[in-house]
Write a protein that binds this DNA or RNA. Sequence first.
DNA 1: AGCGCCTACCGCCAGC
DNA 2: AGGCTGGCGGTAGGCG
Length: 245
Amino acid sequence: LLVAGGEGVEAAAEDPVLIDWVRQRASRARRVASVCTGAFLLAAAGVLDGRRATTHWMYCARLAQSFPAVRIEPDPIFVCDGPVWTSAGVTAGIDLALALVEEDLGRSVALAVARYLVVFLKRPGGQAQFSTTLALQVAEDKFGALHDWINGHLDNELSLSILADQAGMSERSFSRHYAEATGQTPARAIERLRVEAARRMLSERRTPVKRIARSCGFGSEETMRRSFLRVLAVTPQDYRSRFTF
DNA sequence: AGCGCCTACCGCCAGC
DNA sequence: AGGCTGGCGGTAGGCG
């Protein structure tokens, strides 16, 4: 059973016929999953009681408030608790779907599917419109070691020449191969990895924004602010305030 | 808010 | 031929 979310989902969560239907189906389904705010329907049906779950980050607080029995985790892209899977925003549904494919058919099939998605989900701008995590999974064979190294050195200078050096290629070849494998240019990928690291720190700790910026490799607080607006369309302060309960 | 400098990106091309 | 590599230079865009 796969439950989608979207406009009007909270009204739908109060429709007894629908919720009853969800509860019936969920009890017989091998596996239950929700995308985005679809978690509200599962929660209303009691499917999430006592389980770990997630939803779109803007709605985590509201879901927690309406359904105290659900253990909300705002950070992950998706959460798996036994047979029940929930995912964050709409694009996280793609990551969820791939995880389901992987569970059923194995890692290599999931990676093959992901490769097709990279081809077909590219927009004219050339940016892949799904999570960095997914893009990195696809590139794991080729750049897994590099990504491990990058994540351990986010506060270092990570210029094209340094990355190329680390990968043992010329700058030109590295650029080409990296973009081909991940759907992102090297600099863009670094930016997104830094934003992801900073985002985690913003929501998990009370560290001052300026120190977070530095430890994630942004030259300044202002630079981090610009990156956040580009990648997430929110300022760091706004982002943090969503998570301060 | 704006500007000058710097770098990443990418098309092009020669060489292997 | 046909593919891959890597240096060069113009340009757009980001950083400080």
